[in-house]
C-alpha cells in the first residue's frame, strides 16, 4: 500500500490523469494546448509521452465543436477529458453544454450516458481583466444534467478528478490557477471523493463561512485573524460540490453556529451564494441568529489595473469585516496584518 506525501494541486491533477488513463484505456485527454510545451500549466505533463497522440491531443480552436465531439465520443463508449485553459473560453461551447451535453442522457431515456469531464481553469489577478477572470459555476450549475465541482485542496483535486472520470454523467471540473501551487498530503494510490458533498475545512463553533475554491484560502486567513483578534472560532465549510448539491454539511454547520457567511468566487446576483443563502435560510430559519450574508465579486466586469482589481475581488478582509458585523464585534484594526498577495508566488504572465 502506498502512503501519502506532500504534492501540489497541479501534481495531484496530473497524477489523477495518469492513474486513470493507465487504468482505463477508454479515457483520453484533449483540448487546445494539452500536449504543447506548457502542458496546461504543467497539469498534463507526461501524458502524450505515456499514452501517445491518440489519447492526448491538441485540437483546432473550435470550443463548441470540440465539446460536441467529446459528447459523441462519450455516448459511443469513450471517456473524454476536455481541457480549457480558461473557463471564459467555455462560453463558446455554451450551446453544446446547455443544449446537448446536459440533456443527452435524458434524450435517450438513459440508453446513452455521457461520461465526460470538462476541466476549466479559472484565474485571478495580475491584470487578467474581464475575459480571463470569470468562474461561471453558477451558470453551469443552473442547468440540470451537468455536474459542477470546484476542488480546493490537492487531495480534493485528485480524489474528485478520479471520481469525475469514473462518473457516467458529465462533470465540469473547475480549477483555480492560484491553487496550483498549494501543497498538501495526498495519497499515492488512486482514491475517490464524493462529488455532491461539501466538507468542513476548519472546524469551529461561532460562525459558519461557506467558501468556494480560492475563497477557502481567504477564509482560512480570515478565520485565523478572527480567532487571534476576537477569540471567535469560525467553521469553514468548503463548498467543493456545486451541482448537484447535498447541502447537509452546510446546513448542519449553520444550525450549529447560528451565523452564516457565504464567500463565493463569483458575482453575487443570481449566483451560487444566493442558492446557499436560500437553502440555509429555508432549512435553518429557527436556528439562525443573524441573516445570511454574502461576499463575492464586485458587480462589474473585472478591471485590469491593480487598484481596481483589488476592489473587484473579495478577500480575507471582507470576510473579517462581515463576520465582525454579523457577530456585532468592534472592528479590529487590520493595518498590522499581512494578507495574501499573489506576488509571493506569481510573476506572470499567465
Amino acid at each position: 500500500m502506498g502512503g501519502s506525501r506532500k504534492i501540489s494541486y497541479c501534481k495531484a491533477i496530473n497524477e489523477a490523469l495518469i492513474q486513470e488513463m493507465e487504468r482505463d484505456p477508454r479515457v483520453f485527454t484533449y483540448g487546445i494546448g494539452v500536449p504543447d510545451h506548457k502542458r496546461i500549466f504543467g497539469s498534463t505533463d507526461g501524458l502524450v509521452e505515456r499514452f501517445g497522440p491518440e489519447r492526448c491531443f491538441d485540437t483546432p480552436l473550435s470550443e463548441d465543436a470540440m465539446t460536441g465531439f467529446g459528447l459523441g465520443a462519450a455516448i459511443n463508449g469513450l471517456r473524454p477529458i476536455h481541457v480549457h485553459m480558461r473557463v471564459d473560453f467555455m462560453l463558446l461551447a455554451m450551446n453544446q453544454l446547455a443544449n446537448m451535453v446536459s440533456s443527452y442522457r435524458y434524450a435517450s431515456a438513459g440508453e446513452l450516458s455521457v461520461p465526460m469531464v470538462i476541466r476549466a481553469i479559472i484565474g485571478r489577478g495580475w491584470g487578467q481583466s474581464f475575459q480571463h477572470s470569470k468562474t461561471m459555476h453558477s451558470c453551469f450549475a443552473h442547468i440540470p444534467g451537468l455536474r459542477v465541482v470546484m476542488p480546493t485542496t490537492p487531495a480534493e483535486a485528485k480524489g474528485m478528478l478520479i471520481a469525475s472520470i469514473r462518473e457516467d454523467s458529465p462533470v465540469i471540473f473547475i480549477e483555480h490557477r492560484w491553487l496550483y501551487y498549494a501543497e498538501d498530503e495526498v495519497p499515492e494510490e488512486p482514491f475517490t471523493l464524493p462529488l455532491e458533498k461539501a466538507a468542513v475545512l476548519r472546524p469551529g463553533k461561532d460562525i459558519t463561512i461557506v467558501a468556494t475554491s480560492w475563497m477557502n484560502i481567504e477564509a482560512l486567513e480570515a478565520a485565523d485573524i478572527l480567532n487571534k483578534r476576537h477569540g471567535v472560532s469560525a467553521e469553514i465549510v468548503n463548498a467543493r460540490a456545486i451541482a448537484p448539491l447535498d447541502d447537509g454539511v452546510i446546513v448542519d454547520s449553520a444550525r450549529k453556529t447560528g451565523h452564516c457567511i457565504v464567500a463565493d468566487n463569483d458575482w453575487l446576483h443570481c449566483g451560487f451564494s444566493a442558492e446557499i443563502a436560500a437553502r440555509v435560510s429555508e432549512k435553518c430559519f429557527g436556528s439562525l441568529k443573524s441573516p445570511v450574508s454574502r461576499i463575492g465579486f464586485a458587480p462589474a466586469p473585472c478591471p485590469c489595473t491593480r487598484p481596481l482589481e483589488n476592489c473587484f475581488y473579495p478577500s480575507a478582509v471582507n470576510i473579517i469585516k462581515t463576520a465582525e458585523k454579523t457577530l456585532k464585534l468592534k472592528e479590529a484594526d487590520l493595518s498590522e496584518e499581512v494578507f495574501y498577495s499573489y506576488e509571493h508566488k506569481f510573476k506572470g504572465p499567465f
Binding site: G68, F69, N99, M100
Partner: peptide, 8 residues
C-alpha cells in the same frame, strides 16, 4: 448542433 456529436 448534432454535427460535432457525430464527428465525436
Amino acid at each position: 448542433s448534432a454535427i460535432p456529436v457525430a464527428v465525436g
